[in-house]
Amino acid sequence: MQIERASQADAASIQMLVEQVSTQSILPDLTLQGRSAYLRFMQEEMASIFEDARYLIVKMSQGQDLMGFAALRDGHYLSHLFVALSWQRRGVGRQLLNALCAHARSNQISLRSSINALGFYQSLGFQKTGPEATYQGIRYVPMRLQLRR
């Protein structure tokens, strides 16, 4: 297993991973409007993320098997963390987050957690910074992790 920077060459496999995980774990918690907005947002995001210098994107793989990927925007905002369904609950998400935290340009990491990922982020030390909210039908909880430096 190795963690390395992801590139445009990884875009198709990362898009497929995002679609699989989203279909199984995120979309069921959203309204019809939320599903539509989420899919539109993710399609636009995945099309541009690799060309945007504000993002540090890492992937974890074993041979040709993409285990997960994560993206840190502006050195402090965790915009994406997806782990393949077959690799969940095996430490992949924690390792991806740790890899990004090593490059953080702030003493904290913030994010908007999907409802299904709340327990995962809390287990890593993230704290809620506000109540559950909805944007265009997409449910999330704002959270923050204080980094120990």
Rank of each mutant, 00 (worst) to 15 (best):
A84D: 14
S36I: 12
F50G: 06
T31Q: 00
R35Q: 13
G93T: 10
R90K: 15
A53K: 14
S79Y: 11
M60I: 13
I57A: 03
D52C: 04
D65S: 14
R35K: 12
G68R: 07
M67P: 06
A53W: 06
F50Y: 13
I26D: 03
L85D: 09
H80N: 12
L66K: 07
L30H: 06
R73M: 10
R73L: 09
D29A: 11
S86P: 09
L27F: 06
F82T: 07
M67C: 15
G91M: 05
Y38D: 07
Y77V: 08
M60H: 03
F82D: 05
Q64R: 14
S86H: 15
Q62V: 15
V58I: 05
L32I: 13
T31Y: 03
L27I: 02
L56Y: 00
E45R: 12
A70Q: 05
Y55W: 02
A37H: 12
G91W: 01
P28L: 01
W87R: 11
G75K: 04
V83C: 07
E44Y: 11
L66H: 07
F50V: 00
Q88C: 09
A37K: 03
M42W: 14
Q33L: 08
V92A: 03
N98Y: 11
F82E: 02
S48G: 14
F69Y: 15
M67F: 10
F82W: 12
S25V: 15
D65M: 12
R40P: 00
I57W: 08
R94G: 03
L66S: 12
V58C: 05
L27H: 04
F69N: 06
A84I: 02
